[in-house]
Nucleic acid binder design. Structure first.
Length: 429
DNA sequence: TCTGGGGTCCTAGGACCC
DNA sequence: TCTGGGGTCCTAGGACCC
């Protein structure tokens, strides 16, 4: 039996989240900005109609935003994450076979669900999420994930469909017509590098791609990826549902500084804070890192762009914030160059093992005293922060400076994740 | 003046082994 | 000094996703 996937894709997700608590913005052009208020990361339909592209630098569109009275928000990830998990729980009621693909998209496996009219089922799901959570979604249904993506895009752009589109009931001619009108660049798996390459080979539409000789597809797109892309367009599923939460293979925390800096202590504070966040995440997953690193760079948009990769390894795998911070700061001390205008820092943790895996050094010697002390220290740190609020207790280096922190001047209240920022409702009678 | 923050997977090539 | 197939492991870089 062939597979059946549904993709539930939230429309303009970050903007839609802001509108849940600001219904007055329903018809106003609205954008959400990146953490430094530097570029546009989500746009309402009205903002899209003004020609503001995804990733648009704010300074270039300042006039357009002003002339059209566009409402702007700094990204409020606490809010978006919370609303995302509400949608996930609703979808889990429909079927446990769900893959949460990103903060605003989930795939469902519909095999064996006894659905007679898939498009109608999709419209019902859309209506329920709108009613119960307040977020508009598009539902795409197809035998492969690649086609389900395409179907959800179709549902999003053709209002007459009521928010859902299914590939399952199409005739061969209708199927081909859908692929014919889809440019290759709109396909899942075709990015800015492959698009010009395909076009210069005469492959302009999804239909062209679906009819390529396998050997040609392998050569143009890559041996594995090319073959899979063609098969998926022809209804042969290559990407199954991946329901279990796969443990991540790397943890990265990075931030563009509020302003470029050459101050050692400012960079040190940034690194300490980023490392704290990354280490916390690692402890949360009960894992230890064997290696990691620090990536520093100057601004890409200024002459003399440079970047430095400073790798670290741990003789004993660790998730101890203090150990990780001190190793990274030592690297910084050795490689910091006075006078460079540093723009951004990324902290990486890599090469994980489970916390309860036996750890030994080269001689097979386990120093349980140190391990136990570190573990208890981190436990106390996390307990205190859980009880008294995120970031209440931290390492001194994190507080050396706050000037690296990005501007978030337009952030909305964390309506659902901070007691102090709950919305107020007044009732008159 | 002002351009995000997370991630994954694949491939090619070099070093090394028998 | 050169010949040769077959294998593994590692790394850097490229490409993609949201």
């Amino acid at each position: 039996m062939s597979s059946i996937f549904a993709l539930i894709d939230c429309n303009n997700f970050f903007v839609s989240c802001e509108r849940v608590f600001r219904p007055d913005l329903e018809n106003r052009p609205t954008v959400v900005l990146s953490s430094n208020d530097g570029c546009v990361v989500a746009r309402s339909n009205q903002a899209k109609a003004l020609g503001i592209p995804m990733g648009a630098p704010v300074f270039k569109y300042r006039q357009v935003l002003k002339d059209n009275d566009v409402v702007q928000f700094s990204a409020n990830f606490e809010l978006y994450g919370d609303i995302s998990s509400r949608i996930t729980s609703l979808l889990t009621e429909l079927t446990p076979r769900i893959e949460v693909y990103s903060v605003d998209e989930s795939f469902l496996d519909l095999q064996g669900l006894n659905i007679t009219d898939y498009a109608a089922w999709g419209r019902a799901v859309k209506d329920r999420i709108q009613r119960e959570i307040g977020i508009p979604v598009s539902v795409g249904i197809a035998p492969t994930k690649t086609l389900a993506k395409l179907a959800s895009e179709q549902a999003k752009h053709d209002e007459s469909l009521g928010g859902a589109f299914s590939f399952l009931d199409l005739s061969e001619a209708e199927h081909d017509a859908m692929l014919q009108k889809t440019p290759v660049k709109d396909l899942w798996g075709v990015g800015w590098r492959l698009n010009p390459k395909l076009k210069s080979a005469g492959v302009h539409t999804a239909l062209d791609l679906s009819r390529l000789w396998p050997a040609t597809a392998r050569q143009l797109v890559g041996s594995k990826h090319g073959a899979q892309l063609v098969a998926e367009l022809n209804g042969i599923s290559c990407h199954g549902l991946e329901p279990e939460h796969q443990p991540q293979k790397s943890i990265m925390r990075g931030r563009t500084f509020g302003e470029d800096t050459d101050q050692f202590h400012v960079i040190e504070a940034a690194i300490a804070s980023l490392a704290s966040g990354a280490a916390y995440r690692l402890r949360h997953e009960h894992r230890l890192a064997r290696s990691g690193g620090l990536l520093l760079n100057t601004s890409k948009h200024k002459p003399g762009f440079r970047s430095w990769w400073l790798p670290i390894t741990f003789d004993t795998p660790t998730n101890d914030s203090g150990i990780i911070i001190s190793r990274l700061v030592r690297e910084l001390q050795q490689h910091y160059q006075p006078g460079q205008q540093y723009h951004r820092a990324n902290v990486f943790l890599l090469d994980f093992i489970a916390e309860d895996a036996l750890q030994t050094d080269l001689l097979g010697y386990v120093d349980t005293t140190i391990d136990e002390r570190s573990r208890r220290r981190m436990q106390a740190l996390d307990d205190i922060n859980k009880r008294f609020g995120k970031g209440r207790l931290g390492y001194a280096a994190e507080r050396f400076s706050a000037t690296w922190q990005p501007k978030r001047q337009l952030r909305s209240p964390r309506y659902t994740s901070q007691w102090s920022e709950l919305p107020t409702v007044r009732l008159y009678h």
